[in-house]
Amino acid sequence: MKTMKRCIIPSILLMLSLEAVLLVAAGRPSTATGADDVGTILLPSQGKGEAGVVAAAKKKGEEEERPWKCCDFALCTRSFPPLCRCMDKVEQCAATCEKCEPATSDSSRRVCNDWYHGFPGPMCTEAVATAKKEKAEEEERPWKCCDLALCTRSFPPMCRCLDKVEQCAANCKSCDPAASDSSRRVCNDWYHGFPGAKCTADGN
């Protein structure tokens, strides 16, 4: 009798252990299910990369939508963003131009008469861009030309023009009498940029 009890007790314990193992296995989610429940984590570097791709795609889309590839002479409204037309006379309009018509002054050349809602984009010739930049600087500079410039060594420099003139340029704010000759004037404005062209060939 004692021997039978000793055999039954281990069997019962073994069955209980097996049931416990089965219950744990049934309650545990599978590896595949766990993987499906976990969301994708976007690292900061991945986010920046995707933002860069979106910005590049947007820029490319604007270039493809614009009725011209580049434009030197743009006519734009003052709104923001502006409405623009390109007045360039070209041999052939871009594929995106819908109204490609002969130029009024030269029928052998074409002009795209489309209006574009946005900025006109890059210029076609660097020479025209440089000329426009120089003209803008001349209009902003406190003197039209300068023979004796005093500039710092920074880049771009801070400059003053020490020329003694009869009358200062319209852009000059501090036009004072010259110390050595009160009948002449000196512009004491400082300009952030290069002094520009000289007034005389030899600078005298």
Score class of each variant (00 low, 15 high):
F119H: 12
F119S: 13
F119K: 11
P120N: 01
P122W: 01
P122A: 05
M123R: 09
T125Y: 10
T125I: 11
T125W: 09
E126G: 09
E126K: 14
V128C: 04
T130Q: 13
T130K: 05
T130C: 04
T130S: 08
T130N: 06
K132Q: 08
K132F: 01
K132D: 01
K132H: 01
K133P: 09
K133S: 14
E134N: 14
K135M: 11
K135F: 12
K135R: 13
K135Y: 14
A136Y: 05
E137T: 10
E138K: 14
E138W: 05
E138Q: 15
E138V: 01
E138G: 12
E139D: 09
E139I: 08
E139N: 07
E139S: 08
E140M: 09
R141L: 11
P142E: 10
W143P: 06
K144I: 04
C146E: 00
D147H: 06
L148T: 11
L150F: 06
C151A: 05
T152Q: 06
R153Q: 15
S154W: 13
S154I: 03
S154V: 04
F155I: 13
F155Y: 09
L162E: 08
L162K: 13
D163S: 03
K164C: 04
K164T: 12
V165C: 06
E166R: 10
E166S: 14
Q167F: 05
Q167E: 07
C168T: 01
C168G: 01
A169C: 04
A170P: 06
N171G: 07
C172H: 07
D176A: 15
D176T: 10
A178V: 08
A178S: 10
S180F: 02
S180Q: 09
S180W: 02
S180P: 04
